Simulated scan of single mutants.
Amino acid sequence: MPEVFQKGTLYLCPTPIGNLEDITYRTVRCLREADLIAAEDTRHTKQLLMAYDIDTPLTSYHEHNKAEKGPQLIEKLKDGLMIALVSDAGMPAICDPGSDMVRLALAENLPIVPLPGANAGLTGLIASGMDTTRFTFVGFLPKTQKHRLPALQSVEAYEGTLIFYEAPHRIRQVLGEMQEVLGDRKAVLCRELTKRYEQYLHGHLSDLQAALSEQGTRGEFVILVEGMTKTAEEANPENVDYAALVRELMEQGIAKKEAVRTVARRCGVPKRSVYQAALSL
Rank of each mutant, 00 (worst) to 15 (best):
C190Q: 01
V155A: 08
T194L: 09
A210Q: 13
L182D: 07
V174Y: 01
P116I: 13
Q179L: 11
E159W: 08
G176V: 09
L122K: 00
G203S: 13
V174F: 10
L182F: 13
A107Q: 15
M178Y: 06
L162E: 01
F137A: 09
G176M: 08
T144C: 00
M130H: 04
Y158P: 02
S206V: 11
E166K: 05
G129C: 11
L189K: 04
A127V: 15
L182T: 05
H202M: 09
L141S: 03
H147F: 14
D88Y: 07
K195N: 03
P111F: 05
R103V: 14
P111H: 08
L162N: 00
H202C: 13
P97W: 03
A151R: 14
R103Q: 14
L115D: 10
G117S: 06
H169D: 12
A107R: 06
A127D: 05
I126Y: 13
G160D: 08
R134E: 10
E180Y: 05
L122E: 05
K146N: 07
Q199R: 15
A93P: 04
L182C: 15
L182N: 09
V86Q: 04
A127M: 14
A151L: 07
L149R: 07
I126G: 06
M130I: 02
K146T: 14
E180W: 04
V102M: 06
V181Q: 08
R103K: 15
E180G: 06
Q209I: 13
F164Y: 14
L201R: 10
L208M: 08
G121D: 02
K143V: 11
V138G: 03
I112M: 05
H147Q: 13
R196A: 08
D88K: 12
F135L: 09
D96Q: 09
M101V: 02
H204L: 14
Q153G: 13
V86L: 13
